[in-house]
């Protein structure tokens, strides 16, 4: 039996997302633009979200860093498209870890959760009316 301990971290789909991340680039017509850093790995994620109605109609990101943070961002941006903003606020850390499907230890958890932190902090800023473009 393979325990969580021995399970592979760098699974093929993680490496695929890392090598060819989805939704990269900048949105010109964004509602939310937010950047977060993870000093542990020096990971950086800048997220651009376009909100139409109450829905995330488009999302893109610019980022650099380790395979886990970049793959997690690629997967999360896929997941949130066309979702309601209220739903995005409720995404839990467990959901992101499950989405990744790999054993993430307590240290690398910061990498895995960086895109979620970026998204949710960006939404809070947007709700307060900071730094957003009118659309």
């Amino acid at each position: 039996m393979i325990t969580m301990e021995e399970e592979e971290i760098y699974k093929e789909n993680i490496l695929d997302h890392y090598r060819n991340p989805h939704n990269t680039g900048e949105l010109q017509d964004y509602s939310i633009r937010h950047r977060e850093l993870n000093p542990l790995c020096g990971d950086q994620i800048e997220l651009f979200v376009k909100v139409e109605g109450c829905r995330c109609s488009d999302v893109k990101f610019c980022g650099k860093g380790c395979a886990i943070s970049q793959a997690a961002t690629s997967m999360l941006t896929d997941k949130i498209k066309n979702k309601n903003i209220d739903e995005l606020k409720k995404i839990t850390q467990e959901e992101v870890v499950n989405m990744l499907g790999i054993p993430v230890g307590i240290v690398r958890l910061k990498c895995a959760l960086l895109p979620l932190k970026t998204l949710q902090k960006g939404i809070i800023k947007w709700e307060k009316g900071e730094l957003c473009q009118t659309n």
Binding site: I9, Y10, L40, C41, G65, C66, A67, I68, R108, C111
Partner: peptide, 8 residues
Amino acid sequence: HPHDVSTI
């Protein structure tokens, strides 16, 4: 990335 090397 150095952290990916460290994890492996």
